[in-house]
Design a protein around this nucleic acid. Structure first.
Lengths: 330, 330
DNA sequence: ATGGTCGCTGAAACCGGTTACTGCAACGTT
DNA sequence: AACGTTGCAGTAACCGGTTTCAGCGACCAT
């Protein structure tokens, strides 16, 4: 029943005014006499007129939309992140495009093409090549989400260095030795930082750190796989620091499935503090990062225009150590 | 370094042709002599010209974009679904808008507003009011995803009736009595259908079905909560049929945390067959639905135009019973 | 030589809005 | 009475593409 939408000119004709006046009334700008406004409003109401988004966008020279680029959206982390971003964007009247690069061959090209459709793009750290990122930033405002600033491209991220504190806690407060790190530092800037902080924690405690991490993805199922590898070792780790809660929960499930006691046989920690982490038995010791806020701040930054002068280049949100049972506390 | 983009007219002037010719060359339509084409292409190449998306969209009267509306995107189900949708849409050159209605007060209005920005909208079952859905469909092509067709609005969904077969398997093949259903039929059409099929399975086996389900959300953490309720009952269920794998995994974690044996003390089943389900110990008996394909089919349907005549009104994708250890098999 | 066809190209209309500028009438000031 | 403001509304240009239609020269057939 899609009857053709009316245009400004038709509304103008019906209301017996010019298109300029219709536009002024519909967007509430400029001055219009009360009677005229009333009359035009009635006509608009009656015919359910809503200005065509394309015409408006072309005239205003802006899309009223932003995009968020991320690897794939598996797990609560990305869900929260995107919802935070989307909620904030919608609040400002901007719609949100998504581009998942996972499983896509020409991802970088797709991202570049997206620049023609939006007023700004948030790119999750580690999803596209630096070179692509630079070219993208030449076309449209860009913010790196969960990564480091690059050549004038601002970033929004969480304080990953707190993993050093967590590591120190395991080494010093609990006296554990033989820690393992689960996560692939090559995959994302976040994991790079956390692995680095893990090693820093060892240095701080003057304990030698493991040479390599267990390189694996960030999903719960990856954690289960990691558990398989770690617990089959001749000399399994006493404590496992995971790059995020998802993998930590996977490791935890893998451990429980093997009849291991947590934290008696092995301590496990994560990063994020997702909903599940406080529900499992024992509760997962982790580092809380404000995921939703991360997305929201990014959206705000993107939509605030990214003015040249004293622009914010690096926004680091505070994180917090959350001690529960899985590390041996309590 | 955002040097202003060149327009058709500028390219035309440089190449010494008319804007019509530039347009013809850039989009490869109409006939242009080889030499002219070559010359224009060179200019386009040199200046990195790419047609402005807004101008093009206005002229072509289409956005080149579709939207997907869903409650919230927690869990692997929505991830897969959206990725399937997005991948297929991108393949066709359409970009994807997302609208999460979770936590949003004016969700219905937002969805309606979105209709001005896209060529089609996929709405996940149960996210907006039927009335809104109807009004939406008056403006733009709509497909209901994981729900039933409504007044000429086509739907794409999975065969939920297989839950009856699963229920029969638990009742007859394993001889369990006292089954419980975890999931809220009021929340989504999928759960409504599965609850209905659960009762049908009881009728088929001539066993009285429980009066009410455990009304709870679809996330893993909800499953943990459901476990709390079920296992504290005086007469806990012998088998638990969950509305999806997420809650089933939550229930499983809750059961393991209480030291219960699966399937010895309690059998647990899910729906979806997400990655985790084959990794837990014991493996989760579930019903596999082609989530990705569901999203992809929806996108294809939306982008194929939804022609009037013999249009497909209801697409039901096949599901498959996957028997693993959690029901007592093996 | 004339008329018709074909291949190529350009002028101009169009998509549907926004807005700078202009004009007009009513009013107040000297 | 002449002149400057002020409030309101319309004309037309513009945003950046696509596409219809017409024109023009080359070629071929009569």
């Amino acid at each position: 029943m899609s009857n053709k939408r009316l245009t400004v000119r038709q509304i103008a004709e019906i209301a017996n005014v010019s298109i300029a006046t219709v536009s002024r009334v519909s967007r509430g700008t400029g001055q219009v006499s009360p009677e005229t406004r009333e009359r035009v409003l009635r006509v608009i109401e009656e015919h359910g007129y809503r200005p065509n988004q394309l015409g408006r966008a072309l005239a205003e020279q802006k899309h009223g939309a932003v995009a968020i680029v991320f690897p794939g959206l598996a797990g609560p982390y990305f869900s929260e992140l995107i919802q935070g971003f989307e909620y904030e964007a919608m609040e400002t009247g901007a719609s949100v495009h998504i581009v998942g690069t996972h499983r896509r061959a020409a991802a970088d090209d797709d991202v570049l093409a997206m620049s023609a459709r939006v007023d700004g793009i948030a790119v999750h750290g580690g999803t596209i090549k630096e070179e692509t990122l630079r070219r993208l930033a030449a076309d449209v405002p860009v913010v790196v989400l969960a990564g480091r600033p690059l050549d004038g491209i601002p970033a929004v991220r969480a304080d990953n260095s707190r993993v050093a504190e967590l590591t120190r806690h395991l080494l010093v407060d609990h006296g554990y030795r033989r820690l393992a790190f689960v996560g692939n530092p090559d995959g994302s800037p976040d994991v790079t930082d956390r692995w680095e902080a893990f090693r820093q924690g060892h240095r701080d405690a003057r304990v030698p750190a493991p040479k390599t991490p267990v390189k694996i993805g960030l999903q719960q199922s990856d954690g289960v796989i990691a558990a398989g590898e770690l617990f089959e070792r001749a000399n399994p780790p006493r404590a496992i620091v995971c790059a995020n809660d998802e993998t930590a929960l996977g490791v935890l499930i893998g451990a429980l499935g093997r009849g291991l006691k947590i934290p008696g046989d092995v301590a496990i920690t994560g990063f994020d503090d997702v909903a599940m982490s406080s529900l499992v038995q024992p509760g997962l010791t982790t580092i809380r990062q404000p995921i939703r806020e991360l997305g929201a701040v990014t959206a705000r930054l993107l939509l605030s225009g990214l003015g040249e002068p004293g622009a914010v280049m690096d926004t680091v949100l505070a994180t917090e150590l959350v001690l529960r049972g899985s590390c041996g506390c309590r």
